[in-house]
Nucleic acid binder design. Structure first.
Lengths: 217, 217
DNA sequence: ACCTGAACACCGTTCAAGT
DNA sequence: ACCTGAACACCGTTCAAGT
């Protein structure tokens, strides 16, 4: 936290006139608060401006439209996701532990900040070509997983093959279970498995079987 | 199609007064059209009413709020998904082909009707407890997959274990790749694999490895 | 440059009223 | 029962204007 957070209706507004160039930062801070509290639908241009203590039209100085604010939040979120995945992988003692840690981190962020997680991959930021920074942040997170798969291959615990393809299959599985958990589609299975995290570990374990060296066929 | 579709601004409005009890159906038809054309955001109460040729408040006779319309669309969509999956499994000649056909059908629906697919699992219908019919339709689709896994176990091509758990891991993988494809996150990989469907087959194949009988450990 | 207030064309929802 | 029009409190976005 680089700045004290006010509990009043406005956030980080000095007193009178200008934001000295960090209005963009203040707006993103406000938008992030609204996202956590009210979901994507709550991140309105007017609502964000109100919370930041500026006029309704001030955000247009920094963002061309509402989608641009959401895209900036998504980029922040994907960077956070990538950083956490990289941190988890770095602290693991072997490639298998690294993959498990990545899966755990991934599902944990989805559970911790569901609205943010949906925003990262959802349709609100539809035209990814218009927001290359979002796409780049996402690919950077994916790179962490590819790296862990590659390390597994070098250690001989992951089967041969294009690391990107193997990573994609694993990613799909943990991405899928994270979303199914958010959607409340697998509540009973989670209860039976001993909680959402346990169910995610189970699914990750099954995905892991797709990565192990195959016996002679 | 139970009724001719008009190309005018209104749909299925006889001429003068009442809908003789099928206003609900006409509203859902209009909402479905709007969903395909403009996405979830386009499915407004007023816009739907306008397209159906009734006043803005008429929908409230059949749906308590906007979310209820979206939930009804989601229920329809999940039923369609389940039916298609069941049809694909029925026509397959063995359990392995059935699983492949289910995965293909799943990803195909996501590609064919992206807005509908997102609605099925997204946050627009947030409180699933308030919409048990949606949840039931989703679980029915899942049952098709569980059945295919069970058939594979009986045929000896799928390893032993709780069929529901094995199905969940497989579901997560195809659900994940379907969404990653929609999100435009794996466009390059899809091109390299020979198209989205080919990439989905590849991921399904990897998920399949999690289902095969294990060699002696 | 940066920010403002008024205006435009929309929303979802509520309410009193009509047949 | 079923449908209507007016009203309320919101939206995103545009525009002319202010410092």
């Amino acid at each position: 936290m680089r700045r004290a957070r006010s509990t009043k209706r406005t956030v980080a507004k000095p007193k009178g006139a200008f934001h000295h160039g960090d209005l963009r930062w203040a707006l993103l801070q406000a938008a992030s608060l609204l996202l956590e509290r009210d979901g994507t639908a709550g991140v309105g241009l007017r609502a964000t401006a109100r919370l930041a203590g500026v006029s309704q039209t001030a955000p247009y100085r920094h963002f061309p439209d509402r989608e641009a604010i959401l895209a900036a939040l998504a980029e922040q979120g994907l960077t956070t996701l990538g950083d956490r995945m990289a941190g988890a992988a770095r602290e693991a003692k072997d490639p298998v532990a690294a993959l498990n840690a990545i899966a755990e981190t991934y599902v944990a962020l989805a559970a911790e900040r569901p609205y943010l997680f949906r925003l990262l991959f959802g349709p609100e930021v539809a035209d990814k070509a218009r927001h290359p920074a979002v796409r780049a942040a996402g690919l950077r997170a994916f790179d962490v997983l590819i790296g862990a798969i590659g390390a597994g291959q070098r250690a001989g615990v992951v089967r041969a093959g294009e690391a990107t393809d193997l990573a994609l299959g694993y990613w799909a599985a943990i991405h899928g279970i994270a979303l199914l958990l958010l959607d409340g589609m697998v509540g009973e299975r989670a209860a039976a498995a001993g909680g959402p995290a346990a169910l995610a570990r189970q699914v990750a374990g099954q995905a892991w079987l797709g990565l192990t060296p195959r016996p002679a066929r």
